Simulated scan of single mutants.
Amino acid sequence: MRLITKDFLTYGGFALQGKVAALFLLLSGPVWADEVTVLALGDSLTQGYGLVEEDGFVPQMQAWLDGQGVDVRLINGGVSGDTTAGGAARAAWSMTPDVDAMIVALGGNDVLRGIDPAVSRENLSQILQVASDKNVEVLLIGLRAPGNYGPDYKADFDTIYPELAAQYGVAHVESFFAGIEKLDPAEWPAFFQADRIHPNAKGVARIVEQLGPDVLELVHPG
């Protein structure tokens, strides 16, 4: 369901109409009606590469949210191998009228291909602009580039997410893998598949445990 934007609103026994009601809703933050639909726009990490369906990111996050007692429906918008360009190309039609909020987790394949961070930034900006135009709330999940391409590339890429989050006024998490990165690096292999890129079911569980509160705040602010 969409945000409630009625021209007439009753609050605390007082009738608020027209612009006054709109101002109240703006200042009080998002007000969700009924079930909240969230699109998870991403790549193989979102899609659940190498895992049985129920062990993927979206099903595990759905189960976590269900356990919190919130009425949320997650849509798996992950496409294995997708870059930020692919996400930008499908953003508009992916955000159907029933989508209230969106998790954006893209950029890993850009890094693997050594794509210019300026290009990745522009693609992510396009996605966030579409979301803004459609009044869709966003949680932007960042990614830290390795040092393979040098310090300048890493610095340029790593700043994309916090800067765009500030520019568009959206929620931001520094890293998709924050739940694993908190552990001793010697423990990390136990949470990944053989390719050392994609998390296994145990790894996804840690990721969901870390990101869950941020997603909950997205769908149930305050």
Rank of each mutant, 00 (worst) to 15 (best):
V119R: 13
P117G: 11
G114E: 14
G69H: 04
G86T: 00
R73K: 13
A88C: 13
D110A: 09
L112E: 06
D71W: 00
A101E: 09
T96R: 06
W64L: 14
D116F: 06
W64H: 12
L65Q: 11
G77M: 09
W64E: 13
D100C: 07
N109H: 07
V79S: 01
L74T: 07
G114C: 12
G69M: 05
L112F: 08
D71S: 11
T83Q: 12
D100M: 06
V79R: 01
A92H: 02
N76A: 04
G81L: 01
G107F: 06
M102F: 04
N109G: 12
V111W: 10
S94Y: 05
A105S: 15
V104S: 07
D116V: 08
G81F: 00
T84R: 09
G67I: 02
D66C: 11
A101T: 06
I115R: 15
G86P: 14
V104T: 04
A88S: 13
P97I: 01
A63S: 15
Q68E: 13
A101S: 15
V79I: 15
A63D: 15
V70H: 03
G87S: 10
N109P: 13
A92M: 02
A63E: 14
V70T: 14
N76K: 00
S94I: 00
G69N: 07
P117V: 03
Q62E: 10
V70F: 01
V111M: 11
G78F: 02
G108A: 10
A101L: 09
I103Y: 04
W93I: 07
G67Y: 02
V70L: 10
N109Q: 10
D66L: 13
A85Y: 00
W64A: 15
D98Q: 06
L112D: 08
V72W: 03
G78H: 05
A101P: 12
D66I: 01
V119C: 06
Q68F: 03
G87D: 08
P117M: 08
A85W: 01
P97L: 00
W93N: 07
G86Q: 03
G69E: 05
L112Q: 10
N109K: 06
S94G: 11
N109D: 12
A89C: 11
I75F: 02
M102T: 01
G87N: 08
V70I: 13
R73L: 07
P97N: 02
G77K: 10
G81E: 01
A88I: 11
G81P: 04
L74F: 02
S80V: 00
G108I: 00
W64V: 07
I115E: 09
M102V: 02
A92T: 05
G67S: 12
V79T: 05
A118T: 15
T84H: 07
A88H: 10
G107D: 11
Q62H: 04
A101F: 05
A118P: 09
A118C: 06
L112S: 09
A91M: 11
A63I: 10
G69R: 04
